[in-house]
Amino acid sequence: MSTPSFHALTIGECRRETADTVSLRFDVPPELADRYRFAHGQHLTLKTSIGGEEVRRSYSICSGVDEGELRVAIKRVEGGVFSNHANDALAAGMSLEVMTPMGRFTTPLDPAAAKTYVAFAAGSGITPILSILKTVLAREPRSQFLLIYGNRTVSSIIFREELEDLKNRYIGRLAIHHLLSREPEEAGLLSGRIGADLVRELCSGPIDAASVDAVFLCGPQAMVEEVRDTLTAAGTPAERIHLELFGTSAPRRASAAPASVDDPVEGATIAILQDGKRREFTLAYDGDTILDAAHRHGADLPYSCKSGVCCTCRAKVREGKVAMAENYSLEPWEVEAGYVLTCQSRPLTDRVVIDFDAA
């Protein structure tokens, strides 16, 4: 697995998708084509300077794997520094620093398979789902896909025309149910919100919870967790449910060191292994996260959201123990194997060795 790295890419197209959403297509030079090959459902971390400060944000790729383009969509968020900048100031011909694709919100595909896929998306949560949907339908000609997509109004439905075109292209294989929370009178579209009641209703009709092959959930944390829990209760195996959050609740701080640790004032010795090099520094047990402390000591470690969601800062603990405040992206087997999110981790032992080169 290649180490994540940034490269300056030119915006080939800046396209208005809705009144508050733009999509950016990046031109990838031939010498970087291999570095920017992506799996359906992955994301890009974009970096730029706004008001003299470096700003990083992760945005999901909305292109299908076989479409020959690299595109993300960015919805304006109230008070969002990067999203407002993207919607107001970015244009074709401009350049951004773009990290190589990352993320595990995906699933292996088999051209001979005949599977059933279900996705629940809210608002801009459609972006990775669109990539997954297009890739699945193109690469698994015997598979079927059901999408439940929630928005406030018809005008806020991102990629509405493209979704309709896809439904017409894949008649009998793609079903789309739009759910509107603020236009209940809109003819032909469902009203309400995505939640437990809707999921239970669908499980008594078009969704066979126990036999669905893969479910993808993308949206606000409360919605994603409610749908996940309802599907699990209805019989969907947990390992078939894939989650991606757009926003989380307020993060908790990691636990402080236990009383048995000697000299908590001086703190723990942290060793960072990256690109075959080693960097050491001291970190107070109740101080910064390992990621923030490493950056203060000159390490250029990969990160994006700093909320435990994107998994960009994933690394392996080779020695010692840490506590993670939040984890929305690591699988149970990864935690068992010693992987942590360094943006959420603080030391619990007097020495911790973190390996960013671990695959």
Rank of each mutant, 00 (worst) to 15 (best):
L202F: 11
R252N: 11
L147E: 03
P220L: 14
R252I: 15
V224I: 12
I241W: 09
G150F: 10
V227Y: 07
N168H: 00
L130W: 03
R173W: 05
R169N: 00
V265K: 13
R228P: 02
T269Q: 15
G192C: 14
L243W: 08
E266A: 12
G188M: 06
F159W: 08
V265W: 12
T236V: 03
L231R: 08
P220C: 12
P220M: 13
T230Q: 07
E226M: 12
I207E: 02
S249M: 13
P184M: 11
V261C: 08
V199H: 08
E186P: 00
E266H: 15
M223S: 07
R200W: 09
A187T: 00
L174I: 04
R169T: 09
I176T: 05
L245E: 04
P220H: 13
I129H: 04
L146G: 01
F216R: 05
G219N: 08
T236A: 08
E244R: 10
P184I: 11
F145W: 07
L245V: 08
P258T: 13
K167L: 00
R142Q: 07
T135G: 01
F216L: 10
A222V: 15
A138W: 01
E161R: 00
R228Q: 14
P237W: 12
A238P: 01
V215E: 02
E162N: 02
E239M: 04
A256C: 09
R173T: 03
F159Y: 10
T232V: 14
S156R: 03
E239V: 02
G195F: 14
F216Y: 15
E225T: 11
P206L: 15
F145T: 01
S191Y: 14
P251C: 14
L147D: 03
S204T: 13
L180T: 02
T230E: 10
H242T: 08
L217E: 06
D229A: 15
A238R: 14
P264L: 13
E226H: 07
A214P: 00
L146D: 02
S155L: 01
E183P: 00
T153K: 03
I129Q: 04
L147M: 09
G267D: 08
L198M: 15
R193A: 10
E239F: 09
R160T: 00
L243H: 11
T230P: 04
G195D: 13
A210E: 12
E164K: 00
L146P: 00
E161L: 01
I241A: 07
S260W: 15
L217V: 05
L190M: 15
D263I: 10
I194Y: 06
T248D: 12
I176S: 03
L189G: 02
A210Q: 12
V227K: 04
A187S: 06
S181F: 09
L179A: 08
P220E: 12
I148Y: 13
R182Q: 09
Q144G: 03
D229V: 10
C203H: 08
E186R: 05
V154W: 04
S181L: 07
H242D: 07
G219V: 06
L189W: 09
R160P: 01
P264C: 12
S181G: 05
P128K: 13
R228G: 06
S211P: 01
L133K: 05
T248F: 13
E201V: 12
T232N: 04
N168R: 00
P206V: 14
V154L: 05
R252M: 12
S211H: 14
R139P: 00
P258C: 10
P264V: 14
